[in-house]
């Protein structure tokens, strides 16, 4: 990925990390800043594909519950806390990818959707607590099929715009908006980018 960015004329460094603990997340961001200089934006888009394999909750054992739900929450929390260390004195932007199944719910995905809604609440508390540090925190919600091939949304309606979104063409610009100047006063929000399927009240 870093190579692709460089081929496109950008600057990038790849850092390998499980983000399994706060220490690991802090280490990963420290490596990134060591290579690139201070951070302005952290986008947390990590999704474990195993969390998106549908299974009834009653057939989900405790280890699987942890892997598909609580591990995702621990990782998001570690990422947020490590980001704060980098951004507390200079401000910055946090963007979390939270598929629209969080808003709609999805049969077979109880553990993962629990994590998604937990992350949306995490982002709102981060927005409230860290606003005075000049940090914004928001969620971008694409269809779940975009973050894991084969995963299915409840499919309430067809997209109003006639097709599902593509990551680079449709979703990435919204992340860039939230990360850039136009998004500077948006915080605690969830922006749905699904072509008009889910429309919140």
């Amino acid at each position: 990925m870093a190579d692709a960015v460089r081929r496109g004329g950008g600057t990038a460094v790849g850092v390998t990390s499980q983000l399994g603990s706060r220490a690991e997340a802090e280490q990963a961001l420290a490596e990134a800043t060591g290579a690139l200089g201070p951070l302005d934006v952290v986008v947390h888009a990590l999704v474990d594909p195993a969390a998106l394999v549908a299974a009834p909750l009653t057939e989900t054992d405790e280890a699987s519950w942890d892997a598909r739900c609580e591990a995702a929450l621990r990782t998001a929390l570690a990422c947020a806390q490590a980001s704060f260390v980098q951004l507390r004195d200079r401000g910055g932007r946090l963007v979390f990818v939270t598929p629209t199944v969080g808003l709609t719910g999805a049969a077979g995905l109880v553990p993962y959707v629990t994590a998604v809604e937990g992350i949306r609440a995490l982002v709102k508390s981060a927005a409230r607590q860290w606003g005075r540090h000049g940090i914004t925190a928001n969620c971008v919600a694409p269809p779940v099929a975009l973050v894991a091939a084969g995963a299915e949304d409840p499919g309430i309606e067809a997209p109003a715009l006639g097709r599902p979104p593509a990551t680079r063409r449709d979703v990435a610009p919204v992340v860039a908006m939230l990360a850039g100047d136009p998004g500077h006063f948006v915080t605690g929000s969830t922006v749905t980018v699904d072509g008009g399927v889910v429309m919140a009240p």
């Binding site: 009834p56 909750l57 739900c69 929450l73 929390l77 199944v101 969080g102 709609t104 719910g105 999805a106 049969a107 077979g108 995905l109 109880v110 959707v113 629990t114 994590a115 998604v116 809604e117 937990g118 992350i119 949306r120 609440a121 995490l122 982002v123 709102k124 508390s125 981060a126 927005a127 409230r128 607590q129 409840p154 605690g188």
Partner: peptide, 28 residues
């Protein structure tokens, strides 16, 4: 859990999470 919290972020996370749990289990 619905609007975030300035005081109780961990409580907010789990209470937000339970809404995702409920919506999905309701469908299931």
């Amino acid at each position: 859990g619905m609007e975030g919290s300035t005081m109780l972020p961990a409580y907010g996370i789990v209470k937000g999470g339970l809404r995702g749990f409920a919506k999905s289990l309701a469908r299931e």
